[in-house]
Design a protein around this nucleic acid. Structure first.
Lengths: 149, 149
DNA sequence: CTACTTGCAAATAATTTGCATGCGA
DNA sequence: TCGCATGCAAATTATTTGCAAGTAG
């Protein structure tokens, strides 16, 4: 998903290219890690004051609708967003349930599934999927061993 | 995960067998579909007045901690719970993003992954995973075709 | 008895929405 | 100009927590 394509896609769908929207996209492109609405809002606020958290939320909804970003759920009460690749290639994450850190796993177990067969069998139009692996990262595992229960 | 084992497991961990707790377990066992805390609360309230939503939440946390239930996220803002099988066998879901209905898919793409290798490579202790397939169920697909945008 | 539990009410936290104004195309 | 966008503030929703009273073991 390149800069240019995204803007065109927005225009094509009747959305305008506002500075806020551009900053949000830039933030998503600059940092490939999954970011919460709050994260995005805070980063942009640091240098660009004319943005509100509401705007971030509203834009994430639009971007997700257009398939420009993916919404991820790390089970900690807040959603995170990540920009999609233009070629459809995507990865998943190893999410630490202690510190929230997410490591990329460059594979997708969904790929090996026979989607067509499944869709037909279950009479279901498959549009997307979520897959996260939960556990402890090395740092938190060490900490747990030393201090906790 | 059978009735008896669950109660023993609770006792073993210092938890008491309260009527509320038993009703929650009964509700989870009676209806195998993923249910929200509110769903569980409402069902029990219908015939057993001495239960509060707080109690349901508190118990779901405990049951999840003990591995008796799984917490599922259907991207609609509320978590759902499902009782686990004793043999560790589990399934995933085709979740309709229109009506929220969840169809069981009796397979797990996570099984084919080399967890040991992945854990070693990423220095990560794998504890669990989430996997949901999103899309439209037959009913909603029809409705969409007829009435929507 | 006594520690775990519960119900109630109040507090959080994330996300959403109404509305008047602002601005991109 | 005109309709999409934004900021602000208020509202909503799911979930959590403090506390005093209740109860299982």
């Amino acid at each position: 998903m390149q800069e240019k394509n995204i803007l065109d896609q927005l225009r094509k769908n009747g959305y305008k290219i506002t500075p806020q929207r551009q900053e949000i996209l830039r933030t998503l492109q600059t940092d490939p890690r999954p970011q919460s609405a709050e994260d995005i809002y805070r980063k942009i606020s640091a240098y660009y004051p004319n943005i509100s958290l509401d705007t971030v939320y509203r834009n994430m909804a639009i971007l997700q609708e257009l398939g420009i970003v993916s919404k991820l759920n790390f089970q900690d009460g807040k959603n995170r967003f990540e920009i999609n690749h233009a070629d459809g290639h995507h990865h998943h994450h190893l999410v630490c349930i202690k510190c929230g850190d997410a490591k990329v796993v460059d594979l997708c177990p969904f790929k090996s599934l026979d989607k067509t067969k499944l869709a037909k069998e279950k009479k279901f139009e498959i549009l997307g999927h979520s897959f996260e692996i939960f556990g402890h990262c090395a740092a938190c595992r060490d900490k747990l061993g030393k201090h906790e229960i």
